[in-house]
Structure formats: structure tokens, C-alpha cells
Design a protein around this nucleic acid. Structure first.
Lengths: 231, 231
DNA sequence: GGAAACCAAATCGTCATACTTTTGCCGGGC
DNA sequence: GCCCGGCAAAAGTATGACGATTTGGTTTCC
């Protein structure tokens, strides 16, 4: 999943620095400066910058330098950008945005999944719902998170819509971030877990309406909880 | 909006070729081969490849070459990837995916817009609704398209959610593609236009429920129409 | 005869350097 | 005071050399 080799090191430094606002909009970097600062060659700097440029985090112009772009230009759907923002200063803004997105997408995906999921996927969802119940009772947060992520990813994938499917990683990042930064109860809510089971059942039974509704309730809950925690 | 300089020429060749399936999954390119084929230096080839790698269209491995990745790995939210796919062979798959996405996102955005839009945005939406009526009556497809795009972008932006806002360009690409490839009626439907006016009114009045419903009807209409045209 | 270790070629990855092109800035002339 | 032209700074491109790594065949040893 993580990419590249030596330009990757630059990315891992510059990306978070920009995403967190440490290098604010309008900051100008020079290629030569970066060469020295990281002890790498021109080639490497250029490629790293190219990638950041692709994400619209920076723009490179002759006789000016490498300029940090305004947030509004950033490619906010890029998985790396999302992760960097989640790790940095505007984590809460990022979580709110992603929450709204999930609220729009996941119920729709659940409805589609109820119609299009393969038998394997339906079985997997049922199994995962059970796992969630078990690991929640055991208060095994790590395992719970793993299964929660796989549950949501599976629903998104089962929607048979490639764009929904690709949001699986993103939702995974949200759930991970939420756990990592202690933005969720230490013991998962029994109610939320019942809803996961309901989604699984509805998808198995092909009841798209019910799947959609249950999923909506899940995401709504997660969103209001987030808003409480963030004030 | 369009990026880069001389690597851009490579991108403009390779990107569409891959996105259209002309270079199928598993195809291996060699850097040297590309240098010769396009008469550019390694530097340029490497940067172009880096960008494609960032989009997950290809992966570069030592002693192997530059391999075209399976579609399922592609970064389907990247604006360039979307445009390339819309221009190429699986235009219809791309339009269907985007249709479902719009169906999930745009109603939600309309609801949020009704709550958070600025006065300027509300006024602009009303004005655009009028423009749509006028240009539709005059059968001025180009102007209609322009206003339609701005209408939907404005709603998405007014939702005050950066991720929704960023889908403005994407929706723009869909609408453009739909017009360009004659996948919509030559004369816009009066019913659809009335719905646009209704969205504008609801947003102005702060009636989020009504805005959401009207927007959903618009996108649903657009989607069923698409499905008819594509069989 | 088969399996494990080894070697060699292919190809990307990185570096150092030099040349080209664009463009902002400054100074001179009208 | 305004415009024009030239200068210099910075990114963009080119090139040749070397390094690293993976793959696949070949040899060698059981």
C-alpha cells in the first residue's frame, strides 16, 4: 500500500508537514534547499515534488519555487492526503468531512449490497457480525477494529460499485484514527453491534431498504458521537 | 487545471491508453523503450511514470519493468483517471459508477446546502435556475451545460463540506461527457428544470428535506435515463 | 536425477553535472 | 511616470555513470 523508495522519505516528511499546516499556504520551497536538507539528488527531489504536485498540495513554477497551495485545491480524496490530515492538526475537520461522506455513501452501498452481494460476501458479513459481538464482549479493541473495518469494507465492495469499493480504505482510515485517538467509547456500544448484525441479516435476505436504514443508523450514531467528543 | 509540461505529453499518451484498456492489465513497458518512443530523457519518463504510479495505474519494479496494474487498484477518484475513462472504452461503466455516487452524495449535499449556504450562494442558485429555464427554451445546449455544471457545483460547494465540494469538478465531467457523447435529450426536459428551480427555492428557504428530495429526483432521473441509453 | 546454491544479465533507482527555458525584477530610456 | 529590454534566478531537461535488486538459468553437490 505504501509506495516508492527514496522519494518516499521526502514525501513522508513534506506531506505531513504541509497537511498539518506546519508549512502554511504560500510557503515557498526551493529544490536545491530540499536537496541539501535531505541529502538527496535532484532526481529524487523532483519526483517527490511531482507527486505532491499530483495531489495538488504544491505547485512548482520557474523562477519562483515550489509553492504550498491553498487547502481548497488539495486532492482531498487521495488516501495519503487523508491519512496525513488525520495524523495532524486538522484531524477533527477531516473526521467531520469524512463523517458526512460516510453518511451519504455507506447507506447507499448497503442497499446495493443487499441486491448484488455474492454468497461468499453475505456469509462473510454474517461471520463478521458474530466476531464483532464476541470481540466487543471480550473488550478486545484491536480485534474489534480489524473486524469492524473488514465489515464496512465488505459492504462497500459488495455494492459492486468500484467507487464505493475504493472508499473501503478511507473508511478503514477513519475507524483506525477514531480508535487511535480515543474518539470512541472504550467498550463498543451494544446497540451499534446489534445494528451491524441487522445490516448483515438484511444483506443476506436481500432486503435493501432495511440494510440501508440500519447502516444509516450506524453511521449517524458514529457521527453524533464524534461531534460530542469534539464539542 | 491541466498539469505539467513535458512529462505531461507522456501522461496524455499513456494515461488514456491504459484507462481505455488499450494497454491491458499486465502489460509491461520499459523505461528505455518509452524514452525512444517519445524522444525524451530518462528524467522525463521517470516523472511521468511516478505520476501514473501515484494514480496506481502502473507499478514499477526492478528487473521487471513498468507493469499496468489491474483496474481494481486504480485510484478511481483521481480527476484525470475519471476523464481518461470517460473518453475511452469503458465510458459507460464509468458513467454508471459516477451515477450511483452522485445519487448518494448530491441529495445529502443539497440538504446541507439548505442549512449552510451563504446568501450569495442562495442568490446564485436562484439566478442559475432562471438561466437554465431560459437556455433550455432557447435550446442553447452549450450555455445550458455551463449553467447546469455551475448549479450542481454551487450546491456541492454550499454544503460546506470540502469533500463534497471537490466532487464539483467530477460532476462537471459527467455532465460534460453526457452532453458530448449525446447521452441526453437534445432538448432538456422541462420536468428536470422545474426540479432545479425547486432545489434552488428549497435551499433559499432553508428547507433541507425538500432540497434533498428534489435533488434526489433530479439525479435519479439522470441515472435512469442513462441506463435507458446504455441498454 | 533433483534440489539447492550461485552467478550473470536485465532493468529500475540514484547521483552528479551541464545545458535550456521561462519569468520575475530592476534599471534605463522615453 | 510608464514602458521596454535585458539580467539573473530558479525550475526543466538531458546525459552518462554507477548502484541495487530481482529474476532466471546454470552449475554443483548430494
Amino acid at each position: 500500500m505504501e509506495i516508492q523508495g527514496l522519494p518516499g522519505r521526502l514525501l513522508a516528511e513534506l506531506g505531513p508537514a504541509i497537511a498539518s499546516g506546519e508549512l502554511p499556504e504560500g510557503t515557498v520551497l526551493r529544490a536545491e534547499e530540499l536537496e541539501e536538507r535531505f541529502g538527496v539528488s535532484r532526481t529524487v527531489v523532483r519526483e517527490a515534488v511531482r507527486i505532491l504536485e499530483g495531489m495538488r498540495l504544491v505547485a512548482s513554477r520557474r523562477r519562483v519555487g515550489i509553492t504550498v497551495q491553498p487547502r481548497s485545491d488539495w486532492d482531498v480524496f487521495d488516501p495519503l492526503v487523508i491519512r496525513w490530515r488525520l495524523a495532524g492538526a486538522d484531524r477533527s475537520a477531516q473526521l467531520r468531512s469524512l463523517g458526512s461522506l460516510r453518511l451519504a455513501v455507506e447507506p447507499a452501498a448497503a442497499a446495493l449490497a443487499a441486491r448484488h452481494a455474492t454468497d461468499d460476501e453475505r456469509r462473510r458479513l454474517s461471520a463478521l457480525a458474530v466476531e464483532l459481538t464476541v470481540t466487543a464482549r471480550a473488550a478486545d479493541l484491536a480485534a474489534f477494529l480489524r473486524h469492524d473495518i473488514e465489515f464496512h469494507s465488505t459492504v462497500l465492495r459488495a455494492s459492486r460499485n468500484e467507487m464505493f469499493a475504493h472508499l473501503g480504505d478511507t473508511v478503514g482510515a477513519v475507524l483506525t484514527g477514531r480508535t487511535e485517538y480515543h474518539l470512541m467509547p472504550h467498550q463498543p456500544e451494544p446497540y451499534a453491534i446489534r445494528l451491524h448484525r441487522e445490516v448483515a441479516e438484511a444483506v443476506c435476505a436481500g432486503e435493501s431498504e432495511r440494510a440501508e436504514q440500519a447502516m444509516r443508523t450506524i453511521v449517524e450514531g458514529s457521527l453524533t458521537e464524534l461531534n460530542q467528543q469534539l464539542g
